[in-house]
Amino acid sequence: MTEEKSKSEEDNNQALKKMFDSWIETMNWIQNRTPGIPAVGPAAGLARNSVTISSELAQATESFTEFNKHLAQYYAKISAAWMEATRQVIAKCPMDISDEKAREQLKNVWIETFEQEFTTLFDSEDFAQVFGQMLKNEVKFNKHIRNLVEVISTNIGMPTRSEMDSVYKEIERIKNKLKEMSDNIRDLSKIRKETARVSR
């Protein structure tokens, strides 16, 4: 059943990927002709960047599909661990839980078993890979959207993140230079004091 399910998920993903690929091809075909569109003023920038814009959109969609694929795998693993832990708790739990002591015992068994099962899962190489891929595709999706905003911001004359980054970088360089200079001043003043002491 699980194998069938994962095969059908895989098929769905492949179909989606195929569909996006054909969209990308079509868009590229159209966009390669857009620079020919006569446009003046700000629209000229948008026309010039239309290839980048649609390419970023297509890549964002692709990353989102990949993210969903890994999210499904992530939940499948969580759900399998949950089922296994539940099975173990049922096997271990006392039959009669009418008194408080038995309920407390059940709670402790539940916590201990689930902790053990989930720690084993989170410690596994397999889970770490799925987690890493899920995170990677989420961030990639975010990256393409950011690139899109960057292109549009440039066209409408708004400050972009790249511009801010270069300012931050320059400030960091100046701060380091200042630290270096103040260290040199400190060392020089030490040498001066020492020289004055010796010559006295």
Binding site: A128, G132, L135, N142, K143, R146
Partner: peptide, 16 residues
């Protein structure tokens, strides 16, 4: 375990 599979470059380049 998880840190070994994190794409730090992608995270930092994207989020700062």
């Amino acid at each position: 375990n998880l840190s070994k599979h994190i794409d730090a470059d992608l995270l930092v380049d994207n989020y700062g």
